[in-house]
């Protein structure tokens, strides 16, 4: 879902550009606060890995493909604010080097691929975690559901923005139905890929999963402070 140049009028392109710049600025500030020296390379890896995953278009129904957006994955792995910066970096490289996504559409793409999936995905993730027992299986389940929901929501946001500032006047309900319908299918792929990655990381290095910090803390306490705490827990 990379918007090319020309889909949106100048006002919408500038408005979304300003909004995205503001969100990225907050994201950078939050990253400076949240990212320890230890975890800074992890954020770089998340950006690079999402770039790789976005190369892998998988087929969905009838001559259509989809690829990972990655916002939900990034949000679970490094938190929504650092995550939105990671995906914005991916979008910047794609737009500048690979001509994938328009330059004037950068703000739109940051909203649709980074901000909305990161925060919708993370919100749904927290909701699922609150409903399930605190274990690694719930981390994977929450990631999958969050990733699934994030894609059609981003598609719906596209339809709303297109109704407001699209360069062609089309019936809103028609664009909305087509976008959400197609992206429900892509959301299944998003959920499967996100669950696979989160499952692999939370199994090998739960301490590197932002969304599983509540689980990793227990482990660190036991190993770090010795037998008394181990008995107490």
């Amino acid at each position: 879902m990379h918007v090319p140049d020309g889909f949106f009028d100048a006002t919408t392109s500038i408005g979304t550009g300003v909004a995205s710049a503001g969100a990225i600025a907050v994201g950078l500030r939050r990253s400076a606060d949240e990212l320890s020296d230890r975890l800074a390379p992890m954020a770089g890896l998340v950006a690079a890995f999402i770039f790789a995953l976005q190369l892998l278009n998988f087929p969905v129904a009838s001559g259509t493909s989809g690829h990972l957006l990655g916002g939900a994955l990034a949000a679970v792995l490094v938190g929504p604010w650092v995550g939105l910066v990671c995906v914005s970096i991916v979008l910047l490289v794609q737009a500048l080097v690979f001509a994938d996504g328009g330059l004037t559409a950068y703000g739109l793409n940051v909203i649709l691929v980074a901000i909305v999936p990161a925060f919708v995905g993370y919100g749904v993730y927290r909701l699922v975690r609150a409903l399930l027992p605190a274990n690694r299986r719930a981390v994977v389940a929450g990631s999958a559901v969050g990733a699934f929901v994030s894609v059609p929501v981003a598609a719906a946001v596209f339809a709303v923005l297109f109704a407001v500032g699209g360069s062609i006047d089309l019936e809103f309900s028609s664009v909305l139905t087509a976008m959400v319908g197609t992206h429900l299918l892509i959301g299944i792929g998003e959920a499967a890929i996100t669950a696979a990655i989160v499952s692999a990381v939370v199994t090998t290095r739960p301490d590197l999963v932002h969304g599983a910090r509540d689980l990793a803390v227990d482990l660190e306490l036991r190993t770090g402070t010795g037998a008394t705490v181990l008995e107490a827990s």
Binding site: F7, T64, G66, H67, F158, I168, L170, V175, H183
Partner: peptide, 20 residues
């Protein structure tokens, strides 16, 4: 990887705004 149009490209073609 699949080289079919992605979700947005497909919708743009179906709805007639891909030319933009």
């Amino acid at each position: 990887a699949s080289s079919s149009p992605d979700g947005l490209e497909r919708v743009a073609a179906d709805e007639g705004f891909d030319g933009a």
